[in-house]
Nucleic acid binder design. Structure first.
Ligand SMILES: [Mn+2]
Ligand SMILES: [Mn+2]
Ligand SMILES: [Zn+2]
Ligand SMILES: [Zn+2]
Lengths: 147, 147
DNA sequence: AGCTAGATTGGACTCAGTCAATTCTGGATA
DNA sequence: TATCCAGAATTGACTGAGTCCAATCTAGCT
């Protein structure tokens, strides 16, 4: 049985507020959304979801991230992006041309999935991997340009 | 025989300007410096290095990065950082507590040193690995706190 | 129904850059 | 070694992405 956003929040010890439920709901089917994406979607939503302040949005994203209900990634050159997919230690492919981001399963599944060859005295808890390249559509477009 | 910053620039097809030489020089012994670090160091430097505008600094950093004379990394939560160490595809350890950044050699040495298990149609040219954790000093400090 | 710790709001503010118009200069040429 | 001009630097306004703080509101316990 699926659990509602409200249940999920309460089970985690967070109060179930309209703003938090709206963010969790907006994130479904909108992976790697930015705060601006979420703000726009929630403001323009049909239901009475209504509105939340910019500060409220950032507070919610921060609370949910710290509770591990969502994950935040920050690829170079992009504002922070959020996703519901947590706990599987997956990685990302990023297109240098259009910024498109795709999930890549982790071969290991648990963090840190990779050890540094020198740890310099650090206690490592995560190995974050970002593959940079060009996505299919951008590659085709670039090839066509060359005429 | 070592080559001067001026030679390096000219050999790369870039004009040798005081501003570019100052940035290259400031970066020696100052790995992973931010634009602000460099601005401060160059402004307060002894020689007649004098000054460069903020816009000039960003232009120089951008030109040098595109010429592959320096490399830019952007760990989550940090402003961009620059280093002279290029071409060896090395990776980074970042302390979640104090932000300290350490270099980690790449076991392979050439990019992309790691293949994604799904490429989603991308042409991958680089695998960027960031290990997150806590450095030795921060770990000790945290342990002491617990008294 | 009342209470209060926790959550949200509005508005000013900061940090890290970016834009565009103007002025300057490295180094190629005559 | 003087001239010239594309490429580089400067100035100052501006933007995107958050962050700070004091005041207000509310979820959910009693
Ligand atoms: Mn993802
Ligand atoms: Mn490095
Ligand atoms: Zn693309
Ligand atoms: Zn540390």
């Amino acid at each position: 049985m699926e659990q509602s956003a409200g249940d999920l929040l309460r089970r985690t010890g967070l109060r179930s507020t309209a703003q938090r439920r709206a963010v969790l709901t907006a994130l479904q089917g909108r992976p790697h959304a930015t705060a601006a994406d979420l703000e726009e979607h929630i403001a323009g939503a049909e239901g009475a979801s209504g509105t939340l302040s910019r500060q409220g949005l950032y507070n919610v994203l921060d609370d949910l991230t710290r509770a591990h209900l969502i994950r935040c990634i920050e690829p170079a050159g992009s504002p922070a992006r959020f996703e519901l997919r947590v706990g599987d230690n997956h990685h990302h492919l990023v297109c240098r041309t259009c910024g498109r981001i795709e999930d890549v399963d982790c071969a290991v599944g648990a963090a840190p999935c990779l050890d540094p060859i020198q740890d310099k005295g650090f206690t490592v808890d995560e190995a974050e991997i970002t593959w940079w390249g060009q996505c299919g559509p951008c590659r085709s477009r670039a090839a066509a340009q060359h005429s």
